[in-house]
């Protein structure tokens, strides 16, 4: 199934801004994070189709997954 993955801030470095990627049915957010070699503890926000999602969320065909790093400085 095809998933649109959008990355922001530091997650773009060495990766991409947005890409349509194929994953097997049953793929979770955690699987995509692992596939992209993103350190889970660096993730601040996870959106699936504009709504906050958890790492164990099972993605569906044509879902848009957005991953944001923690930006906690002020």
């Amino acid at each position: 199934m095809q998933i649109t993955v959008k990355l922001f801030a530091t997650f773009r470095e060495g990766r991409f801004k947005q890409a349509d990627r194929d994953y097997p049915i049953g793929t979770t957010v955690a699987n995509v994070v692992d596939d992209l070699a993103i350190v889970p503890s660096e993730i601040g926000m996870i959106f699936v189709k504009g709504r906050a999602a958890e790492m164990d969320y099972v993605l569906k065909e044509n879902d848009a997954l957005a991953l944001f790093p923690l930006l906690g400085g002020g």
Partner: peptide
């Protein structure tokens, strides 16, 4: 509410 780090902000 805003946040920043390195070259990025929200």
């Amino acid at each position: 509410t805003a946040g920043v780090l390195e070259f990025y902000g929200s």
